Computed example of a mutant assay.
Amino acid sequence: MVQISPPKRYPEMREKIALVTGGSTGIGLATAQAFAREGAAVIIAGRNEKRAKQALTTFSQDSRVSWIECDVTSGRDVDRLISSALREHGKIDYAFNNAGSGGKMSPIASMSEDAWGKTINGYLTSVFLCMRYQLPPMLEAGRGVIVNNSSVDGLRGYPLPGGAAYSAAKHGVLGLTRSAALEHAKDGVRITAICPGWIGTPPVENFIRKNERVGAQIVGQEPIGRLGTPIEVANGVLWLCSDAASFMLGSPLVLDGGYMA
C-alpha cells in the first residue's frame, strides 16, 4: 500500500461548509474526510442510508458531518438537498459533485436506449442538476467553489469495450464545467473539474479481483505502475477549493499517474 502524506493545511476552510455528493465511499468519502480535517462542516449526500451511517463512523468525534438522502438524478431531490443545507448552515462554500451511476456497459451497436439514458442521467444530468441548485445561493453570496468529478475518459475515448456512454457523459461534464465557469467568471464563484485516472475505489478493486486479466491491463495503462488512491484525488479537490487555486477556472485538474501524458 502506498503511503500518502497528509494534505496541506488550508486554514481558510475552517468553519466553511462543504457539500460532497456520493460522499459515503471511495473518492467522495476521502474528500469529505479531508474537508473535515481542515475544520469544515461537511454534508454528505447519497442514496444509501446504511452506507452513509458506516461512513459517518469514520469521522472524529469533533467533526461536524451530516448526511442527507439524495438521488442526484432527481431535480426535486437536489432542490431539497440544497434547501436543507441552507436551512442548517446558511450557506455552501464548497461543492464537490462526485456522485454518479450508470446503466449496463455495452458496445454502441448493442447498447439499449435505457442503458444510455441511465448513464447520461447518472453521470451528466446529475452534475447539471447539482450546479443548477448550488449556483443561486453562491451567486447571491458572491463566493463559492464548485468542483465536478469528470475523468480521464472525459478527455479521450474509453479504452475498453462498452464504455462509450460513460465517456460521452464525462466529456459532457467537462463541457458543462467550462461553460458554467465562463458564465460566472466574474461573479466570485469558481467552477472547475477534476479528471482522475484509474483509482482504487471499492468498485474498481472488486472488478479487478474478479477480472485479473483486465485488471492487469488497467494497471498497465498507468505509467506510474499502480492505481491512484482516493486520498490522492481528495487532495486535488481540496487544492481546487482552496485560496491557493484562486486563478484556476474552468480547466480541469488531471490526476492520472501519467495516463494522459
Rank of each mutant, 00 (worst) to 15 (best):
M1T: 12
M1W: 02
P6F: 03
P7I: 11
Y10L: 09
P11Y: 12
P11M: 09
E12R: 04
M13Y: 13
R14Y: 02
R14H: 09
E15K: 15
K16C: 08
A18T: 09
L19S: 03
L19W: 06
L19Y: 01
V20A: 06
T21C: 07
G23T: 03
I27K: 04
A30P: 05
A30Y: 03
T31K: 10
Q33H: 09
Q33V: 00
Q33F: 00
A34V: 11
F35L: 07
G39L: 10
G39T: 10
V42M: 09
N48C: 01
A52C: 11
A52V: 10
K53R: 15
K53I: 02
T57N: 07
T58F: 02
F59D: 07
S60Q: 12
S60Y: 00
R64I: 10
V65L: 09
S66P: 00
S66V: 14
S66G: 09
E69V: 08
D71E: 14
V78W: 05
D79E: 15
D79L: 11
R80V: 05
I82P: 04
L86C: 11
I92A: 02
N97L: 12
A99R: 04
G103A: 04
A109C: 11
S112R: 11
E113A: 13
K118P: 07
T119Q: 06
I120P: 07
I120M: 14
Y123F: 15
L124W: 08
T125H: 13
T125F: 02
V127P: 02
L129G: 02
L129A: 02
C130M: 14
Y133V: 03
Y133A: 03
L135G: 04
L135R: 05
E140G: 01
G142K: 03
G144K: 03
G144P: 01
V147Y: 03
N149V: 07
S150T: 12
D153I: 00
D153P: 00
D153L: 01
G154W: 05
L155E: 13
R156F: 00
G157A: 15
Y166W: 11
Y166A: 12
K170D: 01
G172Y: 01
V173S: 04
L174G: 13
G175C: 03
S179H: 13
S179M: 11
A181R: 05
L182P: 00
L182W: 04
L182A: 11
K186F: 02
V189E: 06
I191D: 07
T192W: 06
P196K: 06
I199Y: 06
T201I: 13
P202H: 11
P203M: 04
E205I: 14
I208W: 04
R209N: 13
E212G: 01
A216R: 15
G220F: 13
E222K: 14
P223E: 07
P223I: 09
R226E: 11
T229Q: 15
P230E: 06
V237E: 05
L238R: 10
D243G: 14
F247A: 13
G250V: 07
G250K: 07
V254G: 10
G257L: 10
M260I: 14
